[in-house]
Each structure stands twice: as structure tokens, then as C-alpha cells.
Computed example of a mutant assay.
Amino acid sequence: MNRKVMRQRRKKRRRILFIFVPLLVIVLASVGYGSYLTYKLANATSNANEELGRGGKSDKREQAVDPSEDHFSVLLAGVDDSSKRGFSANGGYKGVRSDALILATFNRKDKSVKMVSMPRDSKVEIPGRRNTDRIAHAHSYGGMDLTVETVENLFDVPVDYYVKLNFDAFLEIIDALGGVEINVEKEITEQNSKDEAKAIHLEPGVQTLGPEEALAYARTRKLDSDIYRGDRQKQLVEAIIKKSASMESIPKYGTVIETVGDNMATNFTFGNILALFKYSKSIDSIENLKLEGYDDTSTGAYYYELDEASVEEVSEQLKSHLELPGYEYNPDDSTSKSEEESNETP
């Protein structure tokens, strides 16, 4: 097998992992107190800080928002890029696609978090491009500036902040945490990160997974389907968050913060990140919104065709959660309504 094919295979498997890494930024922000860790976090944030070309305010906002006072949104982006090439929001983006995109909204009233993941092959309109394209291509065309604009265009909601990370952080974070505890429901045999066949073998039962085992657990799809693989990924997310928040992990925060900081670009300031502390009790009960769609190969190329009704439904929920003008948020109501619709309800 030649090197090009091997690199392509590794990239394909790594895509699923980016959903985990950005969550660590929020977790560490919520527990990263103490003078030493505060210094580490402040230094990492300062080195990673980079504004978008638009400035500090979304074009869909009348004024900039403050996480300590307002509802806000964050776009979490994972790319298969190397920090050695000058990792930044828009530096060296050509040809570098986003391998994972997650939009999270935060409501300051009940400290709740909603999150929606956008499949990388989702067929969308990319501002400035003539034809529809995969959402992952937005980054290769215009870095985080165009990625943010594309997501705003898709859901018609403001993206206030972004966090961009690369794959290098994942294995290092799992290693720094000393592994994570997972209840493996089925026997799994997988390749390792070096493409060595059947190198990883997991028996059913509760066990601590190291970096290589976690990678195999997250990427395997031979057992069932992508839906179940997604469930395993969510299980791993929860395990990472739980381990990060445990007392035994506190001495490891410095290493984890450095790892994330070296592989991150964000327009969050240190003060913004500290404001996330109030969401720490909600971080393990995030509401995941599902974006429905179907596989489409009618053009000869593969796309994930988004269901328009599903996009609209997710958009309405995000608008409500952010309490954008004309919308209200009711935590006890599973459906979101605009103020106009609410007034029409008997």
C-alpha cells in the first residue's frame, strides 16, 4: 500500500474523533481554577486567540455578546491539520477540510447546552460559491471565516465564537488522562493507528481504554452501523468529560491544557472561557439535536442530502434557545416556537 493511500485511510478514520476534543476546552474551562492552572489556561488561550475577519460580532447580531451575560453560540471545528504548519483560524487553510463541525448554543437562564453535529458531506450552499458543495469544503475555500459564514447561512443563526482544533490533541489528551472507563457491549477487533490489522482486541465489559483502544472503539463500524457507531462516540464523549471532571485528573490538567492550546485556534478570550464555569453542571447533560437526511449518489459523487424540514426544525430550536428577537425559550417544552406562533396557540 503506498503512502498516499495510507494517509487517506488514516484521515477517514480520524474524522469521527474531532467531536470529542473541542468539548475538553469547555470542561477544562469549568474546572481549571487554581493559580497554576489559571496561568496555564490564560497562556494557552492567549497563544490560541485569533479574531475572525468580520471582527468580534456576527453579522446576524445587533451587538456583540458576552458569555458571562448573554446567550451565545460556539462553532466547534476539527481539522486534520498540523500545528507545525502554523495552526490558526485562517492560515494555510487551502486544501484543508473540516472533518467535524458541531454548533453548540448556551442559554444563560437555565445554563443549558444544545448541540448539533453537521455531517462533513452535507450538501449546502457556501457563500460566494456558484454551486452547492460539501460543508467540509468551506474551510478549504476560506478557512474559519467562510466556515462560520456557511453555518450561519445554513441555520440562519449567529455564530458568536469558534474553537478550531486538530487531530494531534486527541490521543495526547486520552493519554494525559490515563485512559477512560467504558462499558464495551460487544467484542471488538480493530486496526491500530499504524494500520496494523487486528492489533486491538476488546472483550465485553467495563474497562479502562487507553489512547489506541479508545481510537479503535470510536472508529469501528463492522459490528453494526453508523448509527450505533455514533452511540459509541457519544459514550466516549461522556467518559472523557467524566474523567476530566474527576479529582484524580486535576494534576493532569496542566498537560491537557498545553496539549489543547498547542493545537487550537479560537476567538474566545481568557475571560470568555472562565465565564463557561457556570455551565459546568450541565456539561454532562447536553441535548443533542439530530440533523436528518439521506445518502445521495445521484450525481456520481457522494453527498449527505439534508432534509429541509429537519434543518428548519433544528434552526427553530437553536433560535429559541438563543432567544433571538421574536423567539422565546421554554425549558419545559420540547418544541420551540416563535413569539408569533406562541400568541396564536389557544
Rank of each mutant, 00 (worst) to 15 (best):
S334R: 13
G179P: 01
L236P: 00
S246H: 06
L101W: 06
F277Q: 12
L236F: 12
P251V: 02
P331W: 12
F155C: 04
T299V: 08
P67N: 10
M144W: 05
T255C: 00
L41E: 08
K242H: 08
I227Y: 14
R10M: 14
Y279E: 06
R61W: 06
E340A: 14
I135H: 03
I182T: 05
E196A: 13
A104V: 04
E149N: 05
G56H: 11
D195I: 04
N49D: 12
A104H: 01
D81W: 03
V74N: 03
K12R: 15
R3C: 08
N153T: 14
S310E: 08
I102C: 05
R134G: 02
A48W: 02
K319L: 03
A197R: 13
N166D: 15
R14F: 12
V79M: 08
L154D: 02
S336F: 03
E196V: 14
N49Y: 15
E185I: 05
V5E: 14
S280G: 13
T335R: 13
S338T: 15
P22K: 04
G34K: 10
E316D: 14
E339W: 09
R14D: 13
Q207I: 06
L215S: 03
Q191M: 12
E196W: 10
R7G: 13
N153Q: 14
A239N: 02
Y36R: 11
K84S: 11
A29M: 08
H139W: 09
I286Q: 09
K84N: 11
K40V: 01
I26C: 02
V124F: 03
D99C: 09
D332H: 13
A275M: 04
N49P: 00
G205K: 07
L171A: 07
S244G: 15
P204Q: 09
Y162H: 12
S225M: 04
Y329H: 12
V79K: 06
R3W: 12
V184E: 09
Y253L: 10
N192G: 11
A301N: 14
Y217N: 01
A176M: 00
T269C: 10
A100D: 06
G86T: 06
G293Y: 08
L23I: 07
D66T: 10
K12W: 14
I102T: 15
Y161C: 05
R108H: 08
S35H: 06
G34F: 09
V25S: 07
L177N: 00
F277K: 15
G55N: 11
Y294K: 15
L41Y: 08
T220H: 12
G32W: 00
L23V: 07
D284G: 07
Y39E: 13
A104M: 13
M247P: 01
S46K: 13
S336L: 06
M1H: 12
F72K: 06
I250V: 15
F268M: 12
T150K: 03
S122D: 02
P119N: 04
K40H: 10
T220R: 02
L41T: 07
A216G: 13
